[in-house]
Write a protein that binds this DNA or RNA. Structure first.
Length: 561
RNA sequence: UGUCCCAUGGUGUAACGGUAGCACUACAGUUUUUGGUACUGUCUGUCUAGGUUCGAAUCCUGGUGGGACAACCA
């Protein structure tokens, strides 16, 4: 055997970390953080950031903390705090510590006071519109606020009032005094604090009325915690100079955090915007954040995706400095790769038609052995009852078959998976010409394992016993979105692009009795149909299966032939 | 008439001055108790024009193209 040393090339962030380690930056310490705002559920895009933040810490002997960036009570909720923790754990990561930006409100306040005393921040009483107007545009410099030269003592007094409740929302803000003519818009006296009184903070209630803004709070939070590598997505690139500016104002040691940006995940046919996902949930277009059509972690989980599959996917896509759009087929491939290796095989007939073996003894039941997973060693097997009357897929029989049809047709032989070779003798039709029953004769010498069973037949089909099989509901999920790239559809209502067939519920399905005992974390491959898991709402009396992903191309090819 | 970031097959990435490689997709073929899986093969790429160099995807310059920035969001 050859040595199994698949050396993955390091991404640019890993290279940077190794360089920092070699040069002893920040005393060779590695510390990252995953900093979600608790204003929605985590989705597959967050998984990319999570794998990076936690992965870097894990691989380089550092630590990664979970920090909730909860500086805007108007949008945040404990529901999200809980789900975020659950999803990170499900992905297989543990944070060293759990922090909240709201834990730093006092420290941030004190530093803001220091900045005011240094003459580097002032209270502006203009309206939001006026301030926006004075900011200028990316190509035109801004103009200075008339309040910019307000005396320090007055600034301090007003800052206190901002937090005491005496000041109405929108009446005043604290701004850093930097440069209204800077080519970087973020340097044009950025807002550090605003007043929010009408929403309680999910942790501090109404204790604070003045809340810090992201640009001020984020870098300082990193600094307070000792973060060495502050990894975020590309859209924060232009914020980095400001991040550094704030650090420069307060850093009092050799240590400092550094921000590095990487590309956000985009997937074809998939919406990754929290705002749009919230809309889908609130308007009842989906059944909730964990609807299996959602790209949320919990939606993917409910659909039967495994953590291994998601890691598999993240490993394939890479981290770069430019935006791209990943083909959803890469995600589906990553899932199939894991499921093919680990999911048990089971028999289910989605669209049943009766097959009667005319020469099989009435009332006889044979237990046929089915290997749980032919791709996996020592995974065991189970038995499926075989009888005279079976259900097969309606699609698996054709009275007049085209040349490349490999399944059941009159006069031809086919194998019943795990059982006998049969020869089709005829069928019965109703007054409309629809086939209602198919007849065949079985060859007793061809049971799986018998010497005669090696005979070549053109196809193999799956089946379940009429008497023993169980009714089940099968939910076939498809892509929710049709647009190739929703970013290009900004001005259009994205709901127009929803795929109306994204969920097809099939209640005719019949499954083998073994599946009654299936736990809902279990994944199955239904023969030639796809990978399924048991829906959490499933009960022993009502079996419900969700399709994780279909088998590669099988139906499409069939249609072509 | 700005600042910052970026540009490798259809898609996603690697090559760190020395043979443009990998994966996905698509299309063929082999194996197969499902047309799945596995394996093999084929197609397709360094945005452009200069420069430096024995040698450039890589370094430099100019174009072109894309993205981010004008929330009291993060």
């Amino acid at each position: 055997m050859e040595e199994n040393t698949v050396k993955r090339t390091l991404n640019f962030i890993e290279q940077m970390v190794e360089k920092d380690l070699a040069e002893g930056r920040n005393n060779g310490r590695i510390q990252t953080r995953f900093p979600p705002e608790p204003n929605g559920y985590l989705h597959i895009g967050h998984a990319k950031a999570i794998c990076l933040d936690f992965g870097i810490a894990r691989n380089y002997g550092g630590i990664c903390n979970l920090r909730f960036d909860d500086t805007n009570p108007a949008k945040e909720d404990v529901e999200y705090v809980d789900s975020i923790q659950e999803d990170i754990k499900w992905l297989g990561y543990e944070w060293a510590n759990i922090y909240y930006a709201s834990d730093y409100f006092q420290q941030l306040w004190d530093l803001a006071v220091k900045l005011i005393k240094d003459g580097k921040a002032y209270i502006d009483e203009q309206s939001a519109e006026t301030i926006a107007k004075q900011k200028g545009t990316p190509t035109l410099p801004g103009t200075e606020s008339p309040y910019r030269k307000r005396p320090v003592e007055e600034n301090l007094a007003l800052f206190e009032k901002m937090n005491s409740g005496e000041v109405e929302e929108g009446a005043m803000v604290l701004r850093a005094k930097i440069d209204m003519a800077s080519p970087n818009m973020h340097f044009r006296d950025p807002i550090m604090y605003r007043v929010i009184k009408s929403y309680p903070h999910h942790r501090t209630g109404y204790a604070w009325k003045a809340y810090p803004m992201y640009d001020y709070a984020h870098g300082q939070s990193d600094y307070f915690e000792g973060v060495t590598h502050s990894l975020c997505t590309l859209e924060f690139e232009v914020h980095r100079p400001l991040y550094d500016w704030f650090i420069d104002q307060f850093a009092d040691s050799d240590y400092r955090p550094y921000q590095t940006e990487f590309n956000r995940l985009n997937i074809t046919y998939t919406v990754m915007s929290k705002r749009k996902m919230l809309q889908l949930v609130e308007e009842g277009i989906v059944r909730g954040w964990d609807d299996p059509r959602m790209p949320t972690i919990c939606g993917l989980r409910r659909r039967g995706y495994t953590p291994a599959a998601i890691h598999n996917f993240i490993d394939k896509i890479g981290y770069t400095k430019y935006e791209g759009i990943i083909d959803v087929s890469l995600l589906e491939h990553a899932v199939r790769e894991d499921l093919n290796a680990n999911a048990d095989r089971a028999s289910a007939v989605l669209n049943p038609i009766k097959l009667i073996l005319t020469n099989y003894p009435e009332g006889q039941v044979e237990m046929m052995e089915a290997v749980n997973n032919p791709e996996k060693e020592n995974c065991g097997s189970h038995e499926i009852p075989f009888t005279k009357e079976l259900y097969i897929e309606a699609d698996d029989f054709m009275e007049e078959a085209p040349k490349k049809y490999f399944r059941l047709t009159i006069g031809q032989e086919v194998r019943l998976k795990n059982a006998y070779i049969i020869k089709c003798t005829g069928c019965k039709k109703d007054e409309n010409g629809n086939v209602t029953e198919v007849y065949a004769e079985y060859d007793p010498q061809t049971k799986s394992g018998m010497p005669e069973s090696n005979r070549k037949v053109k196809g193999t089909i799956h089946w379940v016993s009429v008497e023993h099989s169980l009714p089940a509901e099968v939910r076939l999920y498809d892509r929710l979105f049709l647009a190739e790239n929703l970013n290009e559809e900004k001005d259009r209502d994205f709901r127009e692009l929803l795929n109306p067939n994204s969920l097809v519920i099939n209640t005719k399905a019949r499954v083998e009795p073994w599946l009654k005992d299936a736990t809902h974390l279990h994944n199955f491959q239904f023969q030639r149909i796809g990978y399924f898991n048991v829906d959490p709402d499933s009960t022993p009396d009502k079996l419900v299966f969700n399709r994780t992903v279909s088998l590669k191309d099988s139906w499409a090819k069939e249609v072509r032939n």
